[in-house]
Amino acid sequence: MKYRLLCVIPLAFGLIHLFFYFLLSGQDFSHFVYYEIIVVKLLAFLGGLAAAVKFKRGDYLRFAWLYIGGSTLLYAISDIFFVSIMPNMIGITKSNIIRGILVAIGNLIFIIGIWMLARTWTSVVGLSFPGRLWAKRLIIGAAILVTLFLVVPSVIRGLQGSLSGNFGTWDLIVNMVSGLGDLIALSLIAPILLTALALRGGLLKWPWLFLTCILGSWLIYDGVHSWAPNLGLSPAEILGYANFFRVVACLYTVSAGLSQRFIMEGFHRQK
């Protein structure tokens, strides 16, 4: 029951986000999103930490959870230093440089965390994924294509904006690092999904299912930024819809961390 609740809660909070989007006016909603995103990122950090501390020093997944939680902490700190969703604050200022460094390190450790999780099954545990080889290859290929389709346009748009002089050189570097980070991390959704499928019927499927949901939500978040302008959505609408997926991604990090922790606590109690 508690795992099903962990499955539903992120979506429920996503709906609350949409409720405020329809309720509040543009400027008020921007302020709401700013604080909302900081809160969910800090919660995501606590979720990752909750799982990491249950592993002993030297356990393989301890660092993966620390990296995933730690990346959201760095993103939250970067938001606090630099109000990214507010206008007229772009430029090479001290806070901008701090933000860039934090985002770059956050992206790097997120990639490392996801990479560690993605190789857990075949390289570390030494088991194979269920299903036929062609089906597994199809899933991996499809995941890479979907990632390219959803992420690349927003990366190109960011680079074009930077090159056309709308943003500074520093923002160009931050945009490139963020975009590349998203491309690498999100294309690893396939091995994580395959791990969740392998664990079907067992309690351990839950953290892996939630990890898949995190990457899926980030993919759609990038997809909204990539394709919404082509669909004629206004910046305010993009802010509303894209952040639904950002809230859901961060809260699924909480669900993933807590579910891993609950499973491990179950064994400690049995001892």
């Binding site: 249950k54 592993f55 002993k56 030297g58 356990d59 393989y60 997944l61 301890r62 857990t120 570390v124 545990v125 030494g126 088991l127 351990l204 499973i263 491990m264 064994f267 400690h268 049995q270 001892k271």
Partner: peptide, 16 residues
């Protein structure tokens, strides 16, 4: 044990 250690940590693996 090694596979269990990776997935659920050393302490929980010992319990299993």
């Amino acid at each position: 044990r090694p596979a269990l250690c990776t997935l659920i940590g050393a302490q929980a693996a010992d319990s299993v």
